[in-house]
Amino acid sequence: MLSLKLPQLLRVHQVPRVFWEDGIMSGYRRPTSSALDCVLSSFQMTNETVNIWTHFLPTWYFVWRLLALAGGPGFRAEPYHWPLLVFLLPACLYPFASCCAHTFSSMSPRARHICYFLDYGALSLYSLGCAFPYAAYSMPASWLHSPLHRLFVPTAVLNSFLCTGLSCYSRFPELENPGFSKALRTAAFAYPFLFDNLPLFYRLWLCWGRAGCGPEALSSSHSHHLLCALLAGLLFTARLPERLAPGCFDYIGHSHQLFHICAILGTHFQLEAVLVDMRSRRAWLATQEPPLGLEGMVTMLGLVVAGNLLIIITFTASLLRAPGTCPLLQGGQPEGGPQAKQQ
């Protein structure tokens, strides 16, 4: 009878420091795991298992939403719907990329960094994807066809490059200066989020304390999306609750798992909010010239994919040229507890 041996799990002091997570004391996979070991580990309880599944399953949810919307009668044939479909493509990609990063990050120190380079690239592509429906459906009336409206998507393209570059670079000073690394990575993702949501913040300010404000009104899904994004940001930076009780949340309940859940819920509510704007503001927007056609959107998306791949290749080449004695790859284990390490 065939038996399947699951990979052995290790404690924090048994793995190089580059693999340490703040407040996570056990459940680590072997830092030289094979690809098969990594896949098998997703079916045993490790400190990465919930991270893997909280993004693998939502990937298929967003694929289902994309196919359901795209398969609707006449949906793809109408240019008005194209920004929504372009938004859903990176919404499907980023959870899948994150799932793969968490699955295969224990193959080696180099593989770990490269996995997260690709993860960051997918997230920055998602930040651009958000700009398309916001520019098409969510702009305040006074912003339509203004310089800000015309430059909204091109600026999001530049933000995507900045996001990928900063987040990839933030892995290099991670061991020597974890605070600086964490600040860089937080800024890399916070800035594109704040920029993309400028139309919503302005509409919220216009409607604050007013009973009715017509097409500027925000739906409850907008509020839920912004709340989930705020919670995700707090969890990412604070590393709670495992920082308060190291070892108690190694397998279930640590901050990165909660961060994943908040991020996915935020994307779900964002999709619902975009659908509300697309439908409720359609009659008003029908008389307006769309800011970008399908060709322009595909060109922008293709440019960002190529640019982000170039950035990732550049950082990967730098990583591959680094000597094996580089602290980034060795991750020495000095005496004392594990230092702060964020993903």
Rank of each mutant, 00 (worst) to 15 (best):
M1R: 11
L2Y: 05
Q8W: 01
R11C: 04
V12L: 04
Q14R: 03
V15M: 02
I24S: 02
S26D: 14
S26M: 02
T32D: 14
T32A: 10
T32L: 04
S34E: 04
A35M: 06
L36A: 13
Q44A: 04
H55D: 07
P58N: 08
W64V: 10
A68N: 08
P73N: 14
R76L: 15
A77D: 14
E78V: 12
L84D: 05
A97Q: 06
S98P: 00
T103E: 03
M107I: 07
P109W: 03
R112N: 07
G121T: 01
L125C: 09
L125A: 11
A135Y: 03
Y137I: 13
H145C: 06
L148V: 13
R150F: 04
R150W: 08
V153E: 08
A156R: 06
A156G: 09
V157L: 15
L158E: 06
S160F: 07
L166I: 15
S167V: 08
S167G: 08
P173D: 11
P178R: 08
F180P: 00
K182F: 10
R185P: 01
F193C: 14
D196P: 00
P199K: 07
P199N: 09
L200W: 07
Y202G: 00
L204D: 07
R210V: 13
G212R: 12
L218V: 05
S220E: 10
H222A: 07
L227H: 01
L231A: 14
A238G: 08
R239G: 02
P241M: 07
E242C: 01
G247N: 03
F249V: 04
D250C: 02
Y251P: 02
S255P: 03
H260F: 05
L265R: 05
L275H: 07
R281E: 09
W284M: 15
L285Q: 10
A286T: 10
G293I: 08
V298H: 07
T299K: 12
M300A: 15
V304E: 09
V305R: 08
L309I: 12
I312W: 05
I312H: 06
I312K: 10
T316V: 11
G324Q: 13
C326Q: 13
G332M: 04
Q333T: 10
G336E: 06
G337V: 04
Q342A: 09
